[in-house]
Computed example of a mutant assay.
Amino acid sequence: MYLVDLHAHTRFFHGHRSLGDRFDPLGARVLTEMAARRGLDGVATTNHDYYTHLNTAADAVTLPGIEITTDRGHVLVIGPDPPAETKPGALSPAEAVALAHDRDCAAIVAHPFRNSTVRELTAVPFDAIEVNGKHPRSRPLVEKLASERNLPLVGGSDAHYPFEVGRAYTIVECDRLTPEAVVEAIRDGRVEAQVSRSTLDEVVRRGYRAVHRRKRVIDAIERPTPGVGTPPGEESTE
């Protein structure tokens, strides 16, 4: 049994690819060191629309992954051979899942009730659905969705800062912590989503709730027409 955060990022900013490429080795090292401190055995690096192989010497294993921005929302691809780069919005969820499966990776619905309508696609063969660490209060909705789709639940922190890693994670039942073993465990349902309730995690979540509330107020001022400008599923976040 291993504890693995299946959704984390090696940088706290988006864009600026050349700068990010130089920062990523440091970000990965700090991320895995923090994961080990929090008692995790591994963490998947799922940067937005690209994957770079990074060697780390920390106690936590680094698993390959990518967070693909499809035309309907985000899909996590985790496994031995994720795509090196994808163009944001260029793939449909079905195409992202096919790409993942062609590369022997698992395809996971990321934060299904935040900025996403991926959850509405019942015919796409996803491997799991994520309980996201940014808004664990949506878990009952995610559990219902997973039950309807007969899919397992996994947990990921969606960390963009190292101190966020581990606020949600996955218990993985396997003999060895390898990308191939994790994919097999997800597909077999030998995984379980967990949410950390530490004091730090609760403080961080309260901060995010305040930011989200302020953002919705600003959106309402700028776009006063009801329902206009609200990302799909945003109403279900913290």
Rank of each mutant, 00 (worst) to 15 (best):
V4I: 13
H7C: 07
H16Y: 15
H16S: 13
G20D: 07
R22M: 12
L26S: 11
A28Q: 06
E33W: 09
G42P: 01
T45D: 11
T46D: 03
H48P: 04
D49G: 03
D49C: 08
H53Q: 13
A57L: 13
A60G: 02
E67G: 07
T69S: 15
P80T: 03
P83T: 04
A84Y: 05
K87M: 12
P93I: 08
A100L: 05
V109W: 07
A110G: 06
H111D: 10
N115W: 14
L121M: 11
T122R: 15
E130S: 02
V131Y: 00
N132G: 04
R139I: 08
P140L: 01
P140H: 00
L141I: 02
A146F: 01
E148H: 11
E148V: 10
V154R: 01
F163P: 06
F163G: 05
G166R: 00
R167D: 08
R167S: 11
R167N: 11
D175C: 11
L177I: 01
A181M: 09
G189R: 03
Q194H: 11
V195G: 02
S198C: 02
R213I: 12
E222G: 09
T225D: 13
P226I: 06
G229E: 11
T230R: 13
T230H: 10
E238Q: 12
